[in-house]
C-alpha cells in the first residue's frame, strides 16, 4: 500500500510537468492549427540551455526561467521563419506535420551535436522532505507542483480575462471569421508561439528535473505521453489537456509502482486507445480554448 501512496506523489509531480507541456501543445494546435511534432525537440533544447546556465552555477529555478525564454524564442523563430511561410503557401496539415517532424529531428540532433551522447543532470537541491505517512514530497517537487498550478491559473486568466485571450479563442474557433472581425490573427498566432514556447521550455526543464538526467532523445517518449494526454483531454482544449495530464501522470506513475517503469508510455498509450474507442472527441469536447 505504501508504495502506491508514495507513487501518487510521483504521479502528481509527473502530472504537473505533463500539464504544462500538454497545455502548450494543445494550444499550439487549437490556435495555430499545427500539430507540432518538434515540441519534444524544443523541450530538450531549452532544458539543455538551462543546463548550461545551471552548470555555470546559477540556481535551477532561474534555469527554469531561462528555459522558458529559450523555448519562447525558439518557438517564435520556428513559426516566423518556417511554419508561417509554409502556411502562406497553403501547405496541407499533413505537410505541416512533416515540416515539424523535420524541425524536431534537426533540434534534437543539434543538442546531440553540442552536448554529446552522454546524459547530463542539473545541480539542484531537493530541499527538506514533507511527509504525511508514506506520502512524501520534496520541497523541489512541491515547487514543481506549485509552478504548474500557477501556470494553469495564468493560462485560465489569459484566455478568459484578456483581450489577447479573447482573440486566441476567436482564432481557434474560426480564424477567417476572426480576421473579418478585425482580429490580427497572424499576431495572435505569433503571440501564441511565444507563450506556448515559453511553457514548452519550462516543461522541458521541469521534465529534466523530474527525470534526474537527460539526453538529446529523452523527450521522444515523453512526447508520446504529451500527445496522449492532449488527445485524452480533447485536442485543442487547454482544460482537457490539464485533466488528461492529471489522469495520465497519476496512472503512469502508480502503474510503474505495480508493474515496471519500463511500460509507463505503453500504459499511457493503452489509456489513449481506450478513450479513443469510448469517447473519440476526448474527455472535454468542444469547450474550446
Amino acid at each position: 500500500m505504501d508504495i502506491v501512496i508514495a507513487s501518487v506523489g510521483f504521479g502528481l509531480v509527473t502530472a504537473s510537468v505533463l500539464a504544462i507541456a500538454s497545455v502548450a501543445f494543445t494550444m499550439q494546435f487549437g490556435i495555430t492549427d499545427v500539430l507540432n511534432l518538434s515540441f519534444g525537440g524544443v523541450m530538450i533544447a531549452s532544458a539543455f540551455i538551462a543546463y548550461v546556465v545551471n552548470n555555470a552555477g546559477v540556481n535551477i529555478w532561474i534555469g527554469v526561467l531561462v528555459a522558458g525564454v529559450a523555448g519562447a524564442i525558439i518557438s517564435y523563430l520556428i513559426n516566423r521563419f518556417v511554419l508561417t511561410p509554409f502556411k502562406r503557401r497553403n501547405t496541407s496539415p499533413i505537410g505541416m506535420v512533416i515540416v515539424t517532424l523535420a524541425l524536431g529531428l534537426i533540434l534534437e540532433n543539434l543538442v546531440l551535436a553540442v552536448a554529446g551522447p552522454n546524459n547530463v543532470s542539473y545541480a539542484m537541491n531537493s530541499g527538506p522532505t514533507l511527509a504525511v505517512g508514506a506520502f512524501e514530497l520534496t520541497a523541489l517537487q512541491i515547487g514543481m507542483i506549485a509552478l504548474s498550478l500557477i501556470i494553469a491559473g495564468a493560462i485560465h486568466a489569459l484566455l478568459r480575462l484578456t483581450r489577447l485571450g479573447k482573440a486566441m479563442r476567436a482564432t481557434s474557433c474560426n480564424a477567417g471569421l476572426a480576421r473579418a472581425s478585425g482580429i490580427r490573427t497572424e499576431r495572435v498566432i505569433a503571440s501564441t508561439w511565444l507563450i506556448t514556447g515559453a511553457l514548452c521550455g519550462i516543461s522541458g526543464a521541469a521534465f529534466a528535473m523530474n527525470s534526474g538526467s537527460f539526453g538529446s532523445s529523452s523527450a521522444e517518449l515523453f512526447l508520446v505521453v504529451i500527445i496522449a494526454s492532449v488527445f485524452v483531454g480533447g485536442v485543442g482544449q487547454p482544460y482537457g489537456a490539464m485533466l488528461g495530464a492529471l489522469l495520465l501522470g497519476l496512472v503512469t506513475e502508480v502503474s510503474a509502482a505495480f508493474i515496471t517503469p519500463d511500460y509507463k508510455e505503453v500504459i499511457a498509450f493503452i489509456i489513449l486507445l481506450g478513450v479513443m474507442a469510448l469517447r473519440p472527441q476526448g474527455l472535454i469536447a468542444r469547450a474550446t480554448v
Binding site: A170, C173, N174, G176, L177
Partner: peptide, 11 residues
C-alpha cells in the same frame, strides 16, 4: 458575412 462558417460555432 461569409457564405459558410459565418459564426464562431463553439462560442
Amino acid at each position: 458575412v461569409p457564405q459558410v462558417d459565418d459564426v464562431f460555432g463553439p462560442l
